[in-house]
């Protein structure tokens, strides 16, 4: 199940059967165009190769006409069923989409079935209107598809609307650990923070974003950035006004994420033990 995306960053939330909500980023026209162009290029090369090899092989056997017949039929199949074939057997991806990390899903976040894969690619023809004649060759302009994509909030073209599919970006990011704060100075300063002060969610996020990026800034800049948050915190925690703001934020980060917080994670630890039992 999916909720409508939040417009600003076009993220879509999907609730799995395990009752977990996770996010996908929807792929807009400008992410999908390069994947489409790659597919067009691949198809053109394969068409050419089939034409060359097919007719050559059959002409060796003395059946030039049949060779052309086979070639023309495979051109037809390639033109209309290339996308449908790959999206069925590659789990919602064509070669172009795989290279650029896109995937077709249903609007509910489920994988698409063969019917949807084939149909959305046949209906591409309606999206590709109008045609422009350039030197006698019809070139599809995809204006209709673009207009329809712009008019709905999931970037669906007509074929997508008819099949109930969306295209999402599969981002990959490396797992990074916690920022390392080597200085004992920070640990020592953390003692000054009252034990009953609990960092709430929003503050915790702000702290980890700050600490992950502070390495990029000079000392003066850190001071300047950290001060906005540190000044009200100083008042709240009853610390002297001349406390180094950078040091204060690092200490809070240390307290929240690195130092001991007795009793808080027992249930999570249980969960991990249970999984380890299932390991082969």
């Amino acid at each position: 199940m999916s909720k409508p995306p939040r417009q600003l960053d076009s993220r879509i939330e999907i609730v799995t059967p395990e009752n977990i909500a996770f996010h996908y980023v929807l792929a807009g026209p400008f992410r999908r165009l390069p994947a489409f162009l790659i597919d067009v290029a691949i198809r053109a090369v394969v068409l050419f190769a089939i034409g060359l090899v097919g007719t050559w092989l059959f002409s060796l056997a003395g059946a030039t006409g049949l060779g052309w017949g086979v070639t023309l039929v495979s051109w037809f199949a390639l033109a209309w069923f290339y996308g449908g074939f790959f999206e069925t057997y590659w789990n919602g991806q064509t070669p172009g989409k795989r290279i650029l990390g896109l995937r077709v899903l249903t609007v509910d976040g489920q994988p698409i079935n063969a019917l949807q894969a084939v149909l959305r690619n046949i209906l591409r023809d309606a999206d590709s209107m109008p045609m422009a004649a350039v030197g006698g060759i019809g070139v599809p302009l995809y204006m209709l598809g673009l207009a329809v994509m712009a008019a709905n909030d999931r970037y669906q073209r007509l074929g997508d609307l008819a099949c109930g599919t969306i295209v999402v970006v599969e981002q990959r990011s490396k797992l990074r650990g916690l920022a390392s704060l080597g200085q004992t100075e920070i640990a020592r300063f953390a003692e000054n923070v009252p034990l009953n002060f609990k960092v709430n969610r929003a503050l915790g996020q702000a702290l980890s974003v700050y600490v992950a990026r502070r390495e990029l800034f000079s000392a003066e800049r850190r001071f300047e950035i950290a001060r906005t948050l540190a000044e009200p915190l100083c008042v709240l925690l009853d610390l002297p006004g001349d406390t180094n703001p950078d040091l204060l934020l690092c200490a809070l980060y240390y307290r929240t994420f690195i130092a001991d917080r007795p009793g808080e994670f027992e249930s999570l630890a249980d969960n991990s033990r249970r999984i380890e039992v299932g390991t082969p």
């Binding site: 599969e170 990959r172 990011s173 974003v209 994420f257």
Partner: peptide
């Protein structure tokens, strides 16, 4: 941390697929 949460979203999405 937010980095880890983002990583987890992507990991779960990838495994879900």
């Amino acid at each position: 941390p937010p980095d880890t949460v983002r990583y987890l979203h992507q990991l779960v999405g990838r495994a879900h697929n």
